[in-house]
């Protein structure tokens, strides 16, 4: 029987396809890392304010993320030589006072939900009396990271702000 297999340089064949295989292996590793970071990053999980208040004792001394709606009446002040903003975060009818260090997000505004990262501190925040609607419960959340969770409403004249029941 006639043998018609084309002759090829085996060494060249091996080398020419090494790069895609290597790329494939690296991509598999990349997917594994991404999955690990996604599933393992419990810090991204954020508590609504009411849940963060309910689990205050459990969360004490632990950094956690909390989502809530900043209330009108944001106070800028200095705490321990550091510029901070003091405001009240809410979810439904539950309120929590916040002291945030560092620059707030560009779109930080009352009524626009934010995700903050920090720890519970057992004392009132500074300038508590200047807040319009404080939680005033002897605690505040000291935060240093802020991202905005923007809503999905693009109707300029009918878009509604998140609101809370006054405490």
């Amino acid at each position: 029987m006639e043998e018609l297999t084309p002759r090829q340089d085996r060494i060249h064949k091996k080398n020419s396809k090494l790069l895609p295989k290597l790329a494939g292996v690296l991509l598999l590793i990349a997917v594994a890392i991404v999955l690990f970071k996604t599933l393992g990053n419990a810090s991204l999980f954020f508590y609504p304010v009411d849940e963060a208040v309910e689990k205050r004792v459990e969360l004490q001394d632990r950094r956690f993320r909390v989502i809530g709606v900043p209330q009108p009446g944001i106070v800028e002040t200095v705490l321990g030589g550091v510029q901070v903003i003091v405001f009240t975060l809410c979810e439904g009818d539950v309120f929590a006072d916040v002291v945030h260090e560092g620059d707030p997000a560009e779109l930080f505004n009352p009524g626009v939900p934010v995700v903050l990262q920090g720890v519970w501190i057992e004392n009132d925040p500074p300038d508590l009396e200047k807040l319009l609607n404080p939680a005033k419960d002897g605690w505040h959340i000291k935060t240093d990271s802020m991202v905005v969770k923007h809503d999905n409403d693009y109707r300029s004249d009918r878009a509604e702000l998140e609101s809370c029941d006054s405490g």
């Binding site: 991204l44 997000a105 779109l107 930080f108 802020m146 991202v147 923007h150």
Partner: peptide
């Protein structure tokens, strides 16, 4: 500009 972050590791939609 909107979220205040370029990237969020662990964000389920992004990841």
């Amino acid at each position: 500009p909107v979220w205040n972050t370029w990237w969020e590791w662990g964000d389920v939609r992004i990841m």
